[in-house]
Design a protein around this nucleic acid. Structure first.
Length: 499
RNA sequence: GGCCCCAUCGUCUAGUGGUUUAGGACGCCGGGUUCUCAGUCCGGUAACACGGGUUCGAAUCCCGUUGGGGUCACCA
């Protein structure tokens, strides 16, 4: 006999089907389950719903688990795979058949489709009317003998109202006659279908709370019926509102980036993603909106979940990601930036044949570059990045031989060629003679800039010559990071370009 | 179409009958800092879908209308 303690244990599950990579919606469902388990000292079970053998792929299963881990979601049990539990389902199918709660159906697909169309035309809800229910035992056996294709259907009790208390939506009622008739629970090879395995597994795994997307609301009465038939207790249900695309429809593959891995690759931080998607449909109240996973684990409650779908707005995600990037320590940020620089062939990792602090090589110049230098480059853009991937575009000039694609970039307001050259030459003189100390460098450059009628006349050409960009970090920072030698070289190249 | 669910600024939301001239955040606009772009600081724009009730009082409760979403497979 189970004691109360055991009955009260919170057990939730995340049950993805491995037919695609983990996407934003699935990630949020997983997150809510995880948070709920943590908040209530419960367990999270990972269950792979791979009953569709055609569409299920191992690579997707791997992707899902990888993405969950990346997000910081860990599970306490599993992964269980439904493909490995077929004997359990078979047992129940046979039991139901024996008790005549399920039956064989030999109707052809085309036949059924025609029937559904007719029902639709008559403006009736499409449902299976139970044609094969009346087949005699002999007839049934004869057809099986003949090798006729069949499926197994569940005998749905008529005139019954299935009611459940949704933890988010409140009381939800379904009329048994509205759930589509005697639905199919297994194919002819006895391989079971979703609603059936889901109900069995939630029971077998003693799931206390089923937290899943709203699209499953209408499956709930079917699963409750099955649970009743096998004498299982129904778990609590909570259907969370959907994440919508810009078109206000369920977020789907059609929407730009939906796979979590895409976001990871673009340089979103997992903390930013979990924070952001959690707040899409959940809010603990008040005006705060930056929460760590740990904090959310303490605060999460189904009561604070929104009933309405939320549009996925990338702008705010970007903002939030920028916030998290700014909060990172520089070494960690640099480590995250390096793969993007390598991938863009701006730098390469040196084979560690020799001892030494130089770990990287600049592809274009062949120059060595150590981690410290890289992090000083990254530091200039920590406040400017929204996504890590931006580093390769925003800071590429640090890894190039010639940054000046066009001399046009050098001009500032109405300055003449002579004026520009003059500014660049002044810059060269300051850099050549100044004591190599960042504060002194900045001081001297500003002093020089202040002799102009506007500082831009001095600073813009220099910064442009140094970076080849309209937008960048300040010339002081750039010179300091670039170093005296490279800075002078670039300024001279700019003068040459003007002449 | 049947069934189910829902409805506060463009978006995410706070708000659970009076403390609200409806608060915050993103976005957008303007300004300060500034050679540029960011960042940062300051300010502004903008919403209770509509109509009936209930009540001394409704964004908050009830009903209806409209609108939106979900779902109706031998997918999950």
């Amino acid at each position: 006999m189970k004691n109360n303690q055991e009955n009260k244990e919170v057990r939730v599950r995340f049950a993805p089907s491995p037919t695609g990579s983990l996407h934003i919606g699935g990630a949020r469902t997983a997150l809510f389950n995880y948070l709920y388990a943590r908040r209530n000292n419960g367990k999270l079970i990972l269950r792979i719903e791979d009953t569709d053998k055609e569409r299920s792929k191992k690579e997707y299963e791997d992707n899902i688990m990888r993405s969950l881990s990346w997000l910081g979601i860990s599970w306490d049990e599993g992964p269980y795979r439904q493909s490995e539990r077929e004997s359990i389902y078979k047992e129940y199918i046979e039991k139901l058949l024996k008790e005549e709660k399920a039956y064989y159906c030999f109707c052809k697909k085309e036949e059924l489709e025609r029937m559904r169309e007719e029902q639709r035309d008559r403006k009736e809800p499409p449902r299976y009317e139970g044609k094969c229910l009346s087949l005699s035992k002999e007839e049934r056996e004869r057809r099986i003998e003949e090798g006729k294709e069949f499926v197994l259907r569940l005998k749905i009790p008529k005139n019954e109202v299935i009611e459940f208390n949704d933890e988010i939506k409140g009381r939800v009622k379904f009329d048994a006659k509205d759930i589509g008739g005697d639905f199919v629970i297994a194919r002819s090879d006895f391989s079971p279908l979703y609603n059936f395995v889901c109900a069995i597994d939630d029971f077998k795994m003693q799931i206390s709370h089923v937290i899943r997307g709203e699209e499953h609301t209408s499956n709930t009465p079917r699963q409750i019926i099955i649970q009743k038939m096998i004498g299982a207790k129904t778990p609590h249900y909570a259907h969370i509102s959907l994440i919508l695309g810009r078109d206000k429809k369920k977020l789907s593959k059609r929407d730009a980036a939906v796979s979590l891995e895409d976001y990871k690759n673009e340089g979103y931080l997992s903390q930013a993603i979990s924070n952001f998607i959690a707040l899409l449909g959940w809010h603990p109240g008040g005006e705060r909106e930056i929460y760590s996973l740990k904090e959310m684990e303490q605060l999460f409650s189904l009561k604070d979940c929104q009933k309405v779908g939320a549009i996925f707005d990338t702008k705010k995600l970007e903002y939030m990601n920028g916030q998290y990037i700014r909060k990172m320590n520089l070494d960690d940020l640099t480590k995250k930036c390096i793969p993007y620089l390598i991938n863009d062939n701006l730098i390469s990792q040196k084979k560690d044949e020799k001892e030494g602090s130089t770990d990287y090589k600049v592809s274009e110049t062949g120059e060595d570059m150590d981690f410290e230098k890289l992090s000083s480059i990254v530091s200039l853009y920590q406040e400017r990045m929204k996504k890590i991937s931006e580093i390769k575009d925003i800071a590429d000039d640090f890894f190039k031989e010639n940054v000046l694609e066009s001399k046009d970039i050098l001009s500032w307001k109405d300055m003449s060629k002579e004026n520009l050259i003059e500014s660049l030459e002044k810059g060269i003189r300051v850099i050549e003679s100044v004591e190599w100390e960042k504060s002194v460098l900045e001081e001297e450059l500003i002093k020089e800039a202040n002799t102009q009628k506007d500082r831009g006349r001095f600073l813009w050409p220099i910064r442009a010559a140094l970076t080849g960009k309209k937008a960048s970090a300040s010339p002081f920072d750039v010179i300091w990071v670039l170093g005296r030698k490279t800075s002078l070289k670039r300024l001279r190249m700019a003068i040459n370009a003007l002449n």
